[in-house]
Design a binder for these strands. Sequence first.
RNA 1: GCCAAAGUGGCGGAACUGGCAGACGCGCACGACUCAAACUCGUGUUCCUCCGGGAGUGUGGGUUCGAUUCCCACCUUUGGCACCA
Length: 823
Amino acid sequence: MKMTEKYNPADIESKWQAKWEADGLYHADIDPSRPKYYALTMLPYPSGDLHIGHWYAMTPSDARARYLRMKGFNVMFPIGFDAFGLPAENAAIKRNIHPKDWTYANIDRMRGQLRSMGAMWDWRREAASCDQQYYYWTEWYFIQLFKNDLAYRKMSPVDFCPNCNTTLAREQVWGEDRHCERCDTPVIKKDLDQWFFRTTKYADELLDFTEIDWPDRVVAMQTNWIGRSEGASVVFYTEQGDPMEIFTTRPDTLWGATFMVLAPEHPLVDKVTTDANRKEIEAYKLQATRQDEIQRGATDKEKTGVFTGGYAINPVNQARIPIWIADYVMMGYGTGAIMAVPAHDERDFEFARKFDLEIIPVIQPAEAQCDGATMPEAYIGPGLMINSAHFDGTEVNDEKGSKNPGIKAVNNWLEEQEIGRADVSYKLRDWLISRQRYWGSPIPMINCEKCGWHPVPEDQLPVLLPDDVEWLPTGESPLKLHPTWKNTNCPECGGPAERETDTMDTFMCSSWYHLRYLSPNFDKGMFDPEEFDYWMPVDTYTGGAEHATMHLIYTRFFHKAGRDMGIIKGNEPMKQLRNQGQILGPDGQRMSKSRGNVIDPDKQVSQYGADAVRTYLMFGYRWVDGGPWKTENIQGVVRWLHRIWSVFSEPVKPGNPDPAVLKSLRRKVHQTLKQVSNDIESFEFNTIISGLMELLNEMITAKDAGAAGSPEWDEARKFYALMLAPVAPHIAEEMWTEKLGNPYSVHAQPWPKLDEVATKVDEVTLIVQVNGKLRDRITVPAHVSEQDAKQTALASEAAQRFIEGKEPRKVIYVPGRLVNIVV
RNA sequence: GCCAAAGUGGCGGAACUGGCAGACGCGCACGACUCAAACUCGUGUUCCUCCGGGAGUGUGGGUUCGAUUCCCACCUUUGGCACCA
């Protein structure tokens, strides 16, 4: 007899990976006869080393894609690289290697690592955002945005990281001390001419999530980020007659405005400031700008501010109210000016108390009486309007915007009087995309002194990045320092002109990679429309939740803008989104080189095999949560894989089993099939594995009872290999093809067919409760009548003991579950 | 402060629609195999117990014959936002 070889993952994994690849097993091509499924996982940055987090994100997604493929879908599962960005330049500076060389070397290395996952990538669709034929179309799309007035240039104060020497988008600035997301350096403000995209134009539409199935968490984060507030815009006038527009969510409190506050940077500050106050105002402004550089955000900071000496007229009652400046009013939101109603706004109240300003209540709560002189805090609840001319007595409730009768009434009146109007304000700002760095997609714009800014003519695209640059960071784009690159001719007048030397934020590149995957070599457009029509939209998108307010808003904007420009079809790029959690180091901390708690997937794979690493990551965690890597826990799946191997390898010794054993084996097989199918569809990877473990345990028991050799046993092994295929593709292939002798490949097989009848039991165990407490178990036929079930339960000796001869008041019967006797 | 999610054995976690809490696995203990160890296999493993049973899913209440599951209040943890007018 031939000795059974041991399970050696290294042998079978590389063998099958090579064969699958050579056979093009996972190529996904347009096939109108089959339903399509676009499964997408967020593309990696080519940092040079695949992280265990990539495995955690990608291999369960791969398992699900494989399952859907077996279910009959034509599944596309592509991969690529988010290949532009700062780390390449930083590495270049540190090691004097060209960012391009660094990036492509890393991509090469990571391709190998990604292959070791045994995932069903269609490598023919690979795209890297730094490829010429990719950024060609990134540039082209920029031009379309520009032509449609969705890209514009503006001088504006922007967050600038002095370490990375580039500007940052609002969402790339983190924390109370406003530091750079990459290097933790506190950012500073700089006034720069920058390119923006009009994301705000889509603010309302971005708040509509009805067409997509995304996690509540992400929907909530995007909703907060967009920050829609309903209210009114009202124009106040300074005493000199300059209009001063403010936005308020509480127009019903207009009569309680006792002062105005301007942001220190507000353009009217100089004009309203009297000579007597000018010195103090200038000092405060200076201090505010300085503080901007460090921190102006702290909430618990005591309010500061200075009186300008100027006054404004409240348009609703002609009251003359002082104008102050204070840093609690931000130039970047609304109009940078507010009316202050201290009686009904906490911040204004605090400010008024500190500077002894008047407080006039205009909302009267039901019970207490508000008195401006004595009230201990602002009142923000509902009530009736008072001190508000003919609005006195109008009801104000807790609703926001026009649902609030007080706000609605005042808004109507403001419009009639032409003082103001109902309005909406957003926290969302236009997307700043200029970066003063080299390794990014060029912004294809030309500036001519005579003709202004014009796009590079499309037949001259792409604007190529020059290879010969000095990339030492100076705060200016390295492209600006290149001796010749920026010199060109004006597309309008032909005279000498200069190229834009900033490059684009890499989020621009990653906003459309799912479209480039459709046809990475297509040269007549961003994508082949035929591919688009078949594959789009993305059916399932998986990745980290950290992109909720950045990438995931940008890509929706990109898509909607493309739709309105006639380039893209549909309203949303990705129908379903699911987030995975994070794998932490064994110490429960975030993995980092400095902590020395990094788990290297390559090492794990060489030690345990790819199937073990895949299944461990699926089994050990709730996918959405993640958690610390536990080295000893991987033993569980390793043992399981070895047991699978032996169940499939050991010679069959046919026995003479009890038919009940076979029936119960078949039941377990089909119950597991049902459970595994449900779990894999709903991203519950941990219970897929536990279900398969349970089934294997039952198979071993059945085998010991002589089941081997029976048709039930053969079906169990066949189904087992098929159910294993999505999660552990290599061992499943080995079992299917080599051990069971089925035709290659297990991954080209249809998913096994469920026999619902087989999952049903003949006999059920009912629990018998007395007053809700478990007292006994009885076995009854599955279709027992209610009466019989109750009778059997009442007759139970254990139950009788607890009934103690008392008369049952009520007997509850839940079919298949229990009988509860209430006494 | 606001928004969101989550609290279950020593640990990761399971429990369909309100119906046997702790599946599966790790760890641990004991046993078998072994000269011995590892591997492997078997048995046990929420806590208390007078061995009848009792308690138990963050805390306190409620609804219900019955609550990890539904409702109310609170506590804790994690993530996000944070003077947004």
